[in-house]
Design a binder for these strands. Structure first.
Lengths: 206, 206
DNA sequence: TCACATTCTTGCGGTGTCTGCAACAATTGA
DNA sequence: TCAATTGTTGCAGACACCGCAAGAATGTGA
C-alpha cells in the first residue's frame, strides 16, 4: 500500500472523526461542512472529494455489496434450506466486513441514535443493493423450482420476480430491525447476533 | 369551506401540477424551485410555505395516519385472526383515502417511475407512522396473549415490543412492495388489489 | 536523480436550496 | 367598517454542492 493510499485513508478517517466528534458535541444539524473541514485540516472542497454530503461522512463508505462466493452458496443451498436462513448467512457475512475501529463505531452509534433518519437514509440509498439481492433470490427460486418435486408446477417468471422482490424487501426490513436494535442498545452487541435474533423472530411470524 | 381554505388548496394543487409537469418534461433533477414557482404563479418563498422540498411537492401531503376506528378493530380482532390479515385491512383502509384526481395520479406515477428513490424516501420517512403502527401492533399482541391458551406463558414486554417493531417493519415493506408494483404497472390497478396480492404473497413465505 | 504522468488538493466563482424577517395584502369575524 | 388573523412576497443571508484550472504531491521509468 503506497503512500498515496495511506494518506487517502488518513484523510478520510480524519474527516469522519471530525464530523462525528462535532455531531456528538453540538448535534449534526448545527455542524457545517466548513467546520468539519477546518477541524479535519482540509479545504471544504476536499471534503466533497471524499463524501457527497455530511450524512454520508457520518456513516462512512459502507460498501454494500454481495460477495459472489456468498451468492453462489446461497443459490445452491437448494430447496432443503429455508430461504431466510440462507439470507441470514449472507447478511451476517456482510456484517463481518465491519469497521474494526471501536471508538468511531461507538461515536457513530451515538450520532445515529440522535438522528435516526441517517439509518433510514442509508437504507434508502441501498436501492442498488436491493436489486442485487433480488437478483440472487430470483436465481435461487428458479433453482429451487427446478429441483422441486416433479409434480409441482414451475411458476411463471413474473411470479418468481415478484416473490423475489418481496423476499428481498422483507429481509432488508429485518436487517433494518437488527440495525435499529444495534443503535438503541447501550452495550455493544455484535451485529451478527442481532441479525440472527431478528431473523429467528421473523421465522416465528410466518 | 371558506375562501381562504379553497385558495390554499388551489395553490397547493397548482404547485404540485407545476412540479409534476416540469418533471415529466425535463426530469426532476433539471427543475428548480424558481421554475416551479414561476409556472405555479407564486413566489419561490411561497413554494416553501407549502412544501419543504421539491420532493415533497411531487408526492403531495399524504397524511399517513391511522384511523382510530381501524386501530380498535384491529386490536380486538383477537387471536383468531392472523395478524397480517388485520394489517392488510388497515392498509387497505388507508389506501381508500386516496387522491381522486386521476390526472395528477398518473403524472405522479410517471415521475415516481423515473425517480424511484422518491417512493423509497417517502416510505422510509414514515418514521412517525411506523411508531403508530408499532404501538397498535403491540396492543394487539398483548391482547392476544391475554386471551391465549391459559397454559401458555405471557411473553415479556420487551419481547413483545421487539416483535411488534419487526411486524411493523415487515408489513411496511410489504406495503412498499405493493407501491412499487403500482408505480411499475402500465395500467392503473387499484392499490387495494395490489395490497391484497402482496400480503397474500407474504403469507406464503412464512 | 531527473523528467514526466498521474492523482490530489485547493481556491474561486457560481447555482441552487432553504430560512427568518418584516412589510404588505387578503380574508375573516364582529 | 374596523381589527384580528392569516397569507404572500421580497430581501438578505447561510449553507450545500459542483466544475474548473492551477499548483502540489506522489508514482514511474530511465
Amino acid at each position: 500500500m503506497g503512500l498515496r493510499e495511506r494518506k487517502r485513508r488518513a484523510t478520510s478517517r480524519s474527516i469522519q472523526r471530525a464530523v462525528l466528534e462535532l455531531s456528538r458535541d453540538k448535534g449534526l444539524d448545527n455542524v457545517t461542512v466548513d467546520e468539519i473541514s477546518r477541524r479535519a485540516d482540509v479545504s471544504p472542497r476536499t471534503f466533497f472529494n471524499y463524501f457527497s454530503s455530511k450524512e454520508s461522512a457520518v456513516l462512512g463508505e459502507s460498501p454494500f455489496s454481495l460477495k459472489s462466493a456468498d451468492v453462489q452458496t446461497f443459490i445452491a443451498a437448494g430447496p432443503g434450506q429455508p430461504i431466510f436462513d440462507g439470507l441470514l448467512v449472507i447478511m451476517r457475512s456482510m456484517a463481518e466486513t465491519d469497521d474494526h475501529d471501536l471508538e468511531m463505531h461507538q461515536l457513530r452509534k451515538m450520532v445515529v441514535r440522535d438522528y435516526p433518519h441517517l439509518l433510514v437514509q442509508r437504507i434508502t440509498s441501498m436501492h442498488e443493493f436491493e436489486l442485487e439481492l433480488t437478483g440472487a433470490i430470483e436465481e435461487r427460486l428458479v433453482t429451487d423450482a427446478r429441483q422441486g418435486a416433479s409434480g409441482t408446477e414451475i411458476p411463471d417468471q413474473a411470479v418468481i420476480s415478484e416473490r423475489a422482490r418481496l423476499i428481498a424487501m422483507v429481509s432488508i426490513a429485518t436487517m433494518r430491525h437488527a440495525w435499529a436494535r444495534w443503535a438503541a442498545a447501550a452495550e455493544t452487541q455484535s451485529m451478527s447476533t442481532l441479525l440472527t435474533h431478528s431473523f429467528r423472530e421473523l421465522q416465528t411470524l410466518l
